[in-house]
Each structure stands twice: as C-alpha cells, then as structure tokens.
Amino acid sequence: MSGPTTRPTTRSGTRPTGKATAGPATTSAKRSTQVSTTVSTTKPIKGEPYEPSPRRIGEWLGDRDYQRYLVREATSLLLGLYALWLLVGLLALAIGPAAFELWRAAHHSPWSYLAHLLAFAAALYHAVTWIRLLPLTMPPLFGGRLDDVGWRRLAWILSGVSSVALLLYLTWA
C-alpha cells in the first residue's frame, strides 16, 4: 500500500488509519525511515542552511504523486488572485461609493462567476488536502493529544463552524 513512494505526505496522509495510529512510536519510526530514504543525498549538516535538491524540468511528467503535489501547490495561486481581487474591492471601498459599485457590478459578468468557481474549486481542494495531511503537518507540540482520525475530524468541525459563523456575520453584521 505504501509502496516505494518517496513522499510520505501523500499516501500515508490520505489513508484512513486504523493501524497507523496504534502507537505514536511506530508511526514516527515508519516516517523517519521513509524520510531518510528520500533525503539521504542531501545530508543536512547542523548549522548549514537547508538547500533543497534541484529538480529537473519535466521531472513531474511521469510521477502521479508529484503531479498531485504540484496541483496542490498551484491552488495557492488562485487563492492569491482571489486575495488580490478582495484587495481591489477594499481599495475601491476606500476611494468611494462610485468606485465600489463598479467593483460590485463586475461580479455580474459570466467571467466573474467562472473565475470564482475556479477559485472555489482550488480553495476546496486546498482545504480537503490540508485536512487530510493535518496529522503529518501538525507541530510535534500537539502530537499525542489525538489520533489521526481525531485531528481530521476536529479540523472538519472547526472549518465548518468558522465558515458558517463568518457567513452569518457577513450577512447580518
């Protein structure tokens, strides 16, 4: 199941874990062996700045997991464009009602609906993968408090509650 994959974050992160959560010692040991196989060429020496190993152009072409990782990275670009669009709206608001109405009116264009749909899809993909990977990305400080399924469940609840609270606030504020 885990196979010879070199990226522990993709496979083991997405599997619903029955066995993996049996004990923190086993998971961390498993993880460290996987990591050691990947970075053995760039041995980090204490005190030296971390230099990621260079990648060849097109290296991603034959690697499914790597492609998925790149898609996940690319979602941030749409998030950035959305933030820029919010910034434009905020600047329009600061300029005055006429400018703000122009920004508002732009949302009725079919291109705007399409762009927001793409941004929504990217944000959703980011959110779902973020939650699936949470047990791996969680700072060690909070490590043993919950198992993998517990962390994911907590993140789903937190995401749902904060989204609903935000929308209610924006609608009735």
Partner: peptide, 23 residues
C-alpha cells in the same frame, strides 16, 4: 494556508456567487 483551509471556500462562494445572485 490554515486560514484558507478554514474559511476560503465559503468566502469565495459567498462573495463570488451568493452576493451577486442575491442582488
């Protein structure tokens, strides 16, 4: 990334679809 994971999908759908359709 955390902020985006928690609220971005809902916020984008709201400002990009709900607000103009409601208008």
């Amino acid at each position: 990334g955390t902020l985006a994971a928690l609220i971005a999908p809902a916020l984008i759908l709201y400002t990009g679809w709900v607000v103009p359709l409601a208008e």
